[in-house]
């Protein structure tokens, strides 16, 4: 019974992932990340994604501060932050965030403040969406592991 529960949870995860892929929120890089998770690092994906969230929040905060300075926005620094954001987003497969970063960077290179603000809002929105969805994914995963975990010890005993 529990095993079936685990299977159902796995199916839920797959459905959620499929949706995120379909929406273009994630790309195959996320699957690569999942493939790196093995016995030696069982929580690798959530570990990396949490690091990513932590870093991204700092970056978003920095970007907002830079843009809030009406008199003088440091576009160069903004570009550096965006490069980092792009790098980490693409590394975990957050495709839409990466794409928004590209647009954001283009706007910052043109010193287009209005464009930057719009991009920042989209970015924040995308970030929240991704974060929520991935948290959902990890929750299901945890339940699945628990469900599976309950069964294995029983078998072993």
């Amino acid at each position: 019974m529990l095993g079936l529960g685990a299977d159902r949870l796995r199916a839920d995860m797959n459905r959620l992932l499929a949706m995120l892929f379909h929406q273009g929120v994630l790309d195959e890089q996320f699957l690569q990340l999942q493939q790196l998770q093995d016995e030696s690092s069982p929580n690798f994906v959530s570990e990396v994604v949490n690091i990513y969230f932590h870093e991204s929040e700092k970056l978003l905060k920095n970007l907002r501060e830079l843009l809030m300075d009406r008199e003088f926005s440091d576009y160069k620094k903004m570009g550096t932050h965006l490069n980092q954001f792009m790098g980490s987003s693409s590394s975990i497969g957050a495709k839409r965030i990466r794409n928004v970063c590209v647009a954001f960077r283009a706007a910052s290179e043109h010193n287009n403040r209005a464009g930057c603000l719009r991009a920042l809002e989209v970015l924040e929105h995308e970030y929240c969406y991704l974060k929520n969805k991935l948290h959902e994914l990890f929750q299901i995963e945890q339940q699945r592991v628990l469900a599976a975990g309950v069964r294995y010890p029983m078998q072993n005993n």
């Binding site: 790196l36 870093e55 980092q84 590394s91 975990i92």
Partner: peptide, 15 residues
């Protein structure tokens, strides 16, 4: 400096 990438790279290289 991007710890996300660093962590991923570490594992990738370990692979």
């Amino acid at each position: 400096d991007d710890t996300t990438c660093l962590r991923i790279l570490e594992v990738l290289l370990g692979r």
